[in-house]
Design a protein around this nucleic acid. Structure first.
Length: 982
RNA sequence: GGUCCCUUAGCUCAGUCCGGUUAGAGCGCUCGGUUCACAUCCGAGAGGUCACUGGUUCAAAUCCAGUAGGGACCACCA
């Protein structure tokens, strides 16, 4: 006797048990298998800087869903896991901690020690984030877990850089970076914040060479005059037309610079219309300098003081220099005043000091051909975006073909495999490396000497006495290594079996913000290294926002922790809910609330909660809408007091998933409580001869349709539709109708063994299919039920019963005969449902308790009558109503409640109970509605141009509908007539 | 500044690509229910000028143009 099934599903126990079981049995592992097609997904590698957030949970759920589904479809499905070293973010986190906890900067500990610390950090966080992924059920092949800095990935990075260098696609160039002169480091754009500071808008003049004229210009940073290399006016500005091509003199540094025309830089409406150009210290000026081939003069040292190019100002702090420059110009009579002005100034998020645009040496990858190859891959359909509109983002960005700056001034990352040799000659290199195919070199045209690129580290004295090789200090952009992810993780450049089998991948699942940074670069490096695209589909899913439409983040205090949700609702519920979010829109709003630690009530979060700070006084609290108590809550601005119970952030929308799981659990439980004596056997679905009841054939028709639809939706990555379809079938059709209708047969006991056996076989078959359809979305509960069902019904199946697979993960995906989809049957069934609903409606209207049996007569056509008689028992079963008369000659009894449907009128004898006025009111309302609709349709048909221009089938459709409506109205009128006048 | 997206019931969203019966769901709300699967449940019900303006069309939530509000990405902010 199989174990008794508990009334409630216990997610925590099932999750723990099954995840361990699956891993041990190796179900997640994928191996090259020539007998099967392959399906490959590589994970959008999470950073090792933090914990799993909602974005990861969504992203991971979808990839797992697809992987599990493909596995069931017979694919050798690989989901490749791993993490990203996330250069800037990780180094910044570790540096910040070091500074806060020990007061140390990276210069204090040195490169090696800092990198060592970051590795330790990485080990801890990698573990954390991967184990969180496991908690949501991720079926990754963990044996293959990669990290962008591990040996395999590093080898790929080296080879790629070497190849690019050898192909002449790597070059050294100048670029303006955001320079933090306090920390003496470059900072990324997203580490820059803007803050208004009081500043000035100074106006000066430069004397025009060989002329009495001067030309006026304004600036917010007078000290940059030391680095000016041009003055620029708009080409159409008549005031200055005669000066274009002449020169001005910068008295401060005694230099002559040209007056140029550039429509993009100069704005005649602003200031004097002329502008000074400092290419080395301003992004726009830099661009202008590039366009006009201007020299670039760097005037700053890395600590923010003026360097030798600043002449007499050398050594001064830039702000001191600013004052002196203004004074000097004033003395020369070239200062025309200053206007005080608030300046929106870039600041470093780390040191909170102003950023200086700073010209520095960087490495670039030439993008023209690489970008074009990636553009072609999308244009010719080798790579397809779902939804398709995102291909525009991709194509537009690649179309700019901007060269990719791949160097970063950091210590955490892949060190650039370039060595400089200042002293050696071509012969020295030839002598040392001619035999090696992993070393190549170019002359360093800019600085003299040679640039040597090598796949393996070179040692300093490799060239022999007197020639030193010095490696570049910088590391590569994080995206350089993640761009290789789809092939580096499979072993490239080694020609591994896995690479051969699993590449190219199938689908990349990601959110839209990294389409350019990551997706585009994977495509182009894939094409460059592998000669093939990395994946054929890109599935772009929505972003999850809070209830106010803001992105969720820790720094806003609106982030929901997926681990909390799993705790509270179960992993399947979270997955199911998340999947139901994932449609084709851009954003999903997820209102959050604070969960009362005592009564569990969830109080909606308001903006004031997000923004509240203690302000020196008591910590803010949220009043529980349930028990009224006030609790502290987690906030980005402060820590709750020690020992306080804290209201955590949760999202009630996940109840949808939990309720669904509960419903499904109980449906399965019911089935299993009724499987005693189950015997497997094939079902003959088509025709009436198979011994199947109408509800059996109906549910099988619906099941077949549901399976087709779900498959079609998943094929298009429409997870929301697939989930909805499954929910509707399970709840509204299987539970609400089928199970209820099967009850009499299932509970018939010995008396009707044959009918009971058929019902059991259908029930088992549908449940089995449903478990399989739901398994990719809710793997734990389905596995738990699969095991239990196998105890009752080890051999099962709708057409050809066989031994059930030992795990639902190994079962085949559901594909049922399309012939089972029987539209006329479904229509007939729908008619029965309508009548039953109408009866329930009457019962509800008169508040007649369920225990009171009603009598129903139905006036209808002989065909409908036949159907009704076939299920007469169901009226008793579903609504405690006896069907006493049915047919075309049935007439309305006196004192009856009645209803009129499209093809049937129903009368329920309520002598003594019926309220004639209430009946009249109900029917009047119905009458008015019908009359209105009839009028609408008649108007349409009366419209000459509708009848002549609309397609014939549309016109016919309207005629048909109109006829039906008229018939129904007639019935309502009949009923009202018989009600008599009040 | 460029690009993309959103605005439908109190809330969160389907439906819009491909125009055509009476615009749907979940939650919430109202009424009624301890029927031996499930109160995380069952039954019934109320609730919508489909953001606004104009256009195309026999016909517009759906197509086009514009307006307003919101969001995202990219570029930029002498």
């Amino acid at each position: 006797m199989p174990a008794e099934i508990p009334k409630q599903y216990e997610p925590a126990a099932a999750q723990q048990r099954w995840y361990a079981e699956w891993s041990e049995r190796g179900y997640f592992d994928a191996e090259p298998n020539p007998d099967r097609p392959q399906h490959t997904i590589v994970i959008p590698l999470p950073n090792v800087t933090g914990a799993l957030h909602m974005g990861h949970a969504l992203n991971g759920t979808l990839q797992d869903l697809i992987t599990r589904w493909k596995r069931m479809q017979g694919f050798e499905a690989l989901w490749m896991p791993g993490t990203d070293h996330a250069g800037i973010a990780t180094q910044a986190v570790v540096e910040r901690r070091m500074l806060e906890e020990e007061g140390l900067t990276r210069h204090d500990v040195g490169r090696e020690a800092l990198v060592e610390r970051i590795w330790r950090w990485k080990d801890a966080y990698e573990q954390r984030i991967l184990s969180q992924l496991k908690l949501i059920g991720a079926s990754c092949d963990w044996r293959r877990t990669r990290f962008t800095l591990d040996e395999m990935c590093s080898t790929a990075v080296r080879r790629t850089f070497f190849k690019l260098f050898g192909d002449g696609l790597i070059y050294r160039g100048k670029r303006l970076v955001n320079w933090d002169s306090f920390l003496q480091t470059a900072v990324a754009n997203d580490e820059v914040f803007y803050e208004e500071v009081e500043g000035g808008f100074w106006t000066f003049r430069y004397p025009v060479v060989d002329s009495e004229e001067t030309i006026g210009f304004s600036t917010t940073r007078p000290e940059t005059m030391l680095g000016d290399t041009a003055v620029c006016v708009h080409p159409s500005d008549e005031r200055y037309a005669h000066l274009i091509g002449r020169s001005v003199h910068i008295p401060l540094v005694d230099r002559e610079i040209p007056i140029i025309a550039d429509a993009l830089l100069a704005n005649p409406e602003l200031g004097t219309g002329a502008v000074k150009v400092t290419p080395a210290h301003d992004p726009n000026d830099y661009a202008c300098g590039q366009r006009n081939d201007l020299p670039m003069i760097n005037i700053l040292n890395s600590d923010g003081t003026i360097n030798g190019n600043g002449g007499t100002y050398a050594g001064l702090d830039r702000y001191e220099a600013r004052t002196r420059v203004v004074a000097a110009m004033d003395e020369l009579g070239l200062f025309d005043g200053v206007e005080e002005r608030a300046i929106d100034l870039a600041h470093s998020d780390r040191s909170k000091t102003p950023i200086e645009p700073y010209l520095s040496d960087q490495w670039f990858v030439r993008m023209d051909n690489l970008a074009q190859s990636a553009i072609d891959a999308v244009n010719d359909g080798r790579v397809t975006f779902f939804p398709s509109r995102y291909s525009k983002t991709y194509l537009d960005w690649l179309g700019e073909k901007r060269d990719w700056c791949v160097s970063r001034q950091l210590w955490w990352g892949h060190r650039i495999p370039i060595w400089y040799c200042r002293s050696c000659q071509a012969e020295d290199l030839e002598a040392a490396f001619a035999e090696r195919d992993d070393v190549c070199w170019h002359e360093d045209l800019e600085n003299g000497g040679w640039l040597v690129c090598a796949e393996m580290d070179l040692v300093g004295d490799e060239l022999g006495e007197g020639h030193e090789l010095v490696q570049d200090e910088d590391v590569l952009d994080t995206w350089f290594s993640s761009a290789l992810w789809p092939h580096s993780t499979l072993g490239w450049p080694e020609a591994t079996e896995s690479l051969d089998y699993f590449y190219p991948g199938s689908v990349l699942v990601t959110s839209r913000d990294i389409i350019t940074l990551w997706v585009a670069r994977m495509v182009l490096t894939g094409l460059y290294n592998m000669g093939d695209i990395p994946f054929s589909h890109v599935c772009v899913h929505p972003k999850i926002l809070d209830g106010f439409g803001q992105t969720m983040s820790k720094s806003k205090g609106n982030g929901v922790d997926p681990m909390d949700l799993i705790d509270r609702y179960g992993a399947d519920a979270v997955r199911f809910t998340i999947a139901s979010f994932a449609g084709e829109t851009q954003d999903i709003r997820l209102p959050v609330g604070y969960e009362c630690p005592e009564c569990g009530h969830v109080t909606p979060q308001e903006i004031k909660h997000q923004q509240a700070t203690p302000g020196g006084g008591e910590k803010p609290r949220v009043d529980c809408g349930g028990c009224g108590k006030a609790w502290q809550y987690s906030s980005p601005w402060y820590e709750p007091d020690e020992g306080e119970q804290v209201a955590r952030v949760v999202a009630e929308r996940f109840e949808t998933g939990r309720n669904f799981c509960n419903k499904f659990w109980n449906a399965a439980r019911f089935a299993m409580l009724n499987l005693e004596g189950y015997q497997p056997g094939p079902l003959q679905v088509a025709g009436e001869a198979g011994g199947l009841a109408i509800e059996d054939r109906w549910i099988l028709s619906r099941l077949s349709r549901t399976a087709s639809q779900v498959t079609a939706y998943l094929d298009r990555y429409q997870f929301d539709q697939a989930t909805r379809t499954l929910r509707d079938f399970t709840w509204n059709e299987f539970c609400d109708w089928y199970l209820e209708m099967a009850k009499p047969r299932l509970q018939a006991g010995e008396s009707d063994d044959q009918a009971r056996g058929v019902a059991q076989r259908v029930l088992v078959g549908v449940l089995d299919a449903l478990l399989r359809l739901l398994a990719p979305t809710t793997p734990f509960i389905t596995e738990e039920l699969w095991e239990r069902l196998s105890e009752w019904a080890p051999v099962r199946g709708l057409t050809d019963p066989t031994e059930a697979a030992e795990s639902v993960m190994l079962a085949d995906w559901v594909a049922l005969p399309l012939e089972w989809q029987d539209q006329p049957l479904e229509d007939r069934f729908e008619r029965l449902q309508e009548i039953i609903v109408a009866v329930r409606n009457v019962r509800s209207t008169y508040t007649i308790p369920r225990s009171t049996q009603l009598s129903l007569s139905v006036r209808c056509s002989p065909a409908v009558a036949e159907d009704l008689q076939a299920v007469a028992g169901q009226f008793l079963n579903l609504s405690n109503t006896e069907l006493i008369a049915v047919g075309s000659d049935v007439s309305q009894p006196d004192g009856a409640a009645s209803f009129a449907l499209g093809e049937a009128d129903g009368y329920i004898d309520l002598e003594g109970v019926v309220d004639r006025e209430a009946e009249r009111a109900r029917h009047l309302k119905e009458q008015a509605k019908l009359t209105g609709m009839i009028a609408g349709h008649e108007k349409k048909l009366a419209n000459e141009s509708f009848v002549s221009k609309a397609p014939a089938e549309v016109v016919d459709g309207v005629r048909e509908t109109l006829a039906g409506l008229k018939e129904q109205l007639e019935r309502v009128n009949d009923i009202m007539g018989q009600l008599g006048d009040a």
